[in-house]
Design a protein around this nucleic acid. Structure first.
Lengths: 110, 110
DNA sequence: AGGCATACTTCATCAGGCGAAGTATCGCGT
DNA sequence: ACGCGATACTTCGCCTGATGAAGTATGCCT
């Protein structure tokens, strides 16, 4: 629904924010974010997993494979200490940025 | 100051919004946006002009060269009818998007 | 004359979201 | 038993758009 370019700067933050209240696996993160946005945010699987792999490689999150009887294999991700710093930083940057844009594009520049 | 990825989805809108109250040339647009954002938004010249060329090719804006005695040559851009539609559409999309993100990354998901 | 601001141009690079195609398992209805 | 949709993840190549770097040229101030 929203353009890819719009999402570019915030995919990491959105995904990280889904991990703030505990471990989740990829598919779950996707569904959660779609739910939290009332279906307005659509996450493509390729995007979702590529962001997760990238963030794990950077040490922001840590994945743990869980295989149980009668369940599909899933990789549960948790935030690292570094990841917590990153999400705080990105949240702050996003809020400053969105406030700035909203102000600059706002109506009254008379 | 803000990351390139963050800016990705909003450069066009920011620049278009600078043209809503009349014709301006490239350099002027850059300075205006920097001023309106209290210096927080830094526009690179290469970005600025490439966005302008792109938008003109798409018919959102129309450039007009002005050369006067004792002045440098400047290209003044104005919004086209199509451009007015685009800026309205992009503003709406941006506002919906930023509201959605702010809500999704917001603190309380207990 | 020198230096800085003004004003625009061109081009190669790079990262990130996405489409497409694939693998595999589980549960449900018929 | 069989098909189908949902679950869950993987890989790869494409395309777009912001950027850095380098360049051109002119006007103004000292």
């Amino acid at each position: 629904m929203f353009s890819a370019d719009l999402k570019r700067g915030s995919m990491e933050l959105l995904i990280l924010s889904a991990l703030e209240d505990g471990a989740r696996h990829g598919y779950e993160i996707g569904k959660l974010l779609e739910h939290r946005s009332d279906g307005r945010l659509e996450l493509r699987v390729s995007t979702l997993y590529s962001v997760l792999y990238r963030m794990e490689k950077r040490g922001w999150i840590k994945g743990r494979w869980v295989e149980r009887q009668g369940e599909r294999r899933r990789c549960y991700y948790t935030l690292t200490a570094r990841g917590r710093q990153v999400v705080a930083r990105q949240r702050q940057e996003w809020q400053a940025f969105s406030a700035m844009v909203n102000r600059v594009i706002g109506v009254s520049h008379a």
